[in-house]
Amino acid sequence: MTYDFDLFVIGAGSGGVRAARFAAGYGARVAVAESRYLGGTCVNVGCVPKKLLVYGAHFAEDFEQAQAFGWSLSGEATFDWPTLIANKNREIERLNGIYRNLLVGSGVTLLEGHARLFDEHNVELGGQRYSA
């Protein structure tokens, strides 16, 4: 039997992207379906945003201690929440782009939408079926 793909990965988190890239690198016909965002939970709503927000939060303490290390701050330090969030979002978008380029550059077919298993060899996405 001939299938559309040798491997069909549901989810473009770190594990799904790596599996897809490696399989494609060995010549497999590979598709990845992702319904939300490339990079998975860590990149989009977990590790990466948390680290950026925590890093940003530490500046207040650093400014307080800066004088003891020879720094002179003129004026009062201010904080702008929308700027922090915009920069966090920009970094996540950059990382999403890297994941997209890694997949597409590896010859993986990227399908954006919610995939579901239809039967043992078929996946349905956006009203279309793909066999693997």
Rank of each mutant, 00 (worst) to 15 (best):
L102F: 04
V48C: 03
F63L: 12
G75W: 08
K88W: 04
A68G: 11
K50M: 11
C42S: 12
V48D: 02
L52A: 02
P49L: 07
C47L: 13
N96E: 14
T83N: 04
E76Q: 12
A57S: 15
V54R: 05
P82W: 12
Y55M: 09
R90C: 04
F79N: 07
N87D: 13
K88R: 15
H58K: 13
E76W: 01
L102W: 09
G56S: 14
D62I: 14
L73W: 10
A86M: 03
Y99G: 00
L103Q: 07
A77K: 13
R100H: 15
V43I: 15
C42E: 07
G46A: 12
G46C: 07
S72A: 13
F79E: 09
P82M: 09
T78G: 06
S74W: 06
E64N: 03
A68I: 00
A68C: 00
V48T: 10
N44M: 02
V48R: 00
Y55H: 13
P49Q: 03
G75S: 09
Q67E: 15
C42D: 08
G40Q: 06
L53S: 08
E61F: 05
N89D: 15
R90T: 03
C42F: 05
A86W: 02
N101W: 11
F63Y: 14
P49F: 05
F69K: 14
F79C: 04
E64F: 06
R100N: 11
S74R: 10
R90E: 10
G46M: 10
S72G: 10
T83D: 12
Y99V: 02
T83G: 00
Y99K: 06
E93H: 12
L103C: 06
A66N: 07
W71K: 05
Y55S: 09
A77F: 11
I92D: 04
E91L: 12
F63I: 14
G97W: 06
L52R: 00
Q67F: 11
N87S: 10
A66T: 01
F79Y: 15
P49S: 01
